[in-house]
Nucleic acid binder design. Sequence first.
DNA 1: CCAAAAGTGTTCGAATTACACCCATGA
DNA 2: TCATGGGTGTAATTCGAACACTTTTGG
Lengths: 233, 233
Amino acid sequence: MNPYLNHAKHLVAVDCIIFGYDLPDKELKLLLLKRIFEPARDKWSLAGGFVQADESLDDAACRILRKLTGLDSVYMKQSYCYGDVGRDPGDRVISVAYYALTSIRDIDSDIVMRNGVHWHSVSRLPDLIFDHNAMVKKALSDLQNDIKITPAGFELLPEKFTLVQLEELYKAIYQHDIDRRNFRKKVVALGILEKLEEKETETSKRGAYYYRYNRETIEKLKREGFYFDLEVS
Amino acid sequence: MNPYLNHAKHLVAVDCIIFGYDLPDKELKLLLLKRIFEPARDKWSLAGGFVQADESLDDAACRILRKLTGLDSVYMKQSYCYGDVGRDPGDRVISVAYYALTSIRDIDSDIVMRNGVHWHSVSRLPDLIFDHNAMVKKALSDLQNDIKITPAGFELLPEKFTLVQLEELYKAIYQHDIDRRNFRKKVVALGILEKLEEKETETSKRGAYYYRYNRETIEKLKREGFYFDLEVS
DNA sequence: CCAAAAGTGTTCGAATTACACCCATGA
DNA sequence: TCATGGGTGTAATTCGAACACTTTTGG
């Protein structure tokens, strides 16, 4: 007898918590879309989709993200698997949550329009369907922890950024103020930032130096067991 | 049209990484069982089972643990969801890994016998089926992180334990030595331990005081936003 | 010259580390 | 009395937190 027979099979979905950082607004945002079918039609929802037969969970997450944003190769990470029986009133669905980090301006605005999606500030989220609010809460907490020990936060910024922008990003993610001087000391001490000649002069007369971070250096350090530490108060 | 139709359904399993602490041996152990069906018959495997139609993931994990150990209400935590297409050669199975913490002597040895299970030292594990070695590795890493910020480690000890035993436990989990004096200072400073009159006199002539920890105190502190910190070097 | 944002150092206290000797007891 | 394991304290250092003024420049 085949031990794989006679067991229930389940719909398995992937839901993506897509974080984007709005540089001008200095706000961490979330890409949401209006659900176009019942149950809960017209309520806000995370981007989700069902896992296909020949597709890994990671692949499914990438596919869903690509379909909605046009983006490939963004930072993605599995957050948690949600499997309560009644969590989706439409049917029993087990859902694996992934979170993605992207800079908002990376997203093709045509695609954004066409899918009826919208960026919402994480600090003023609407009610989402099912357990999606809990998913966001957990993913944000994961993100807050991840950026302490990996350079994931940088994924939310464009290639070139100023230290002020980096600081504002961390404030937006932690949702509290941080000390500018201590933050700069710590982030510079990491040794992964490269100061450019160029300045950003839109937001101030004086201008702020652009920095970029070197992915190769980071990869090298990670291979050497480098422990990134950017805990902030 | 029903949006839930026409999607692939999947076998979903739960695999339990059951950690136990062997007090006399001072070793962190893992409950493994010999697989009794193909594929990979007779290879060592984690305790697993399929999620039923009317059962949450957490419930499935509890059921599997109970069946194998007779234990209810042990510390369990979801670790990660594994969903690569070819991970189980028998069929496409998506597997949610949970880890459990228990003191070895809590387990009904009849049940252990009957199920042909065996405790293995985590530092000398055999080859496991499929991706189970990776699951263990990830779960151990999760555990190492968890015991820094929650009192989960205590779940691996009996009700009464000595500070020496607690220290040996942490050594076994981190798989490196720690400084006895610094560890004791830190763990006592947490204020969650109660020193008993009684001494443990089996292993030394002098005897070591038993301690126990007060679950109620911990619950209260957790509600107050208490941050347990037992990072050790 | 002034408003607005960028940039910079120091001091203090707390926490972590490193480290070695005395104690109690049963055999 | 001695071998065995239990128990303790201190000094040095590092790390994190708090805190305010100077610089630049365009308008």
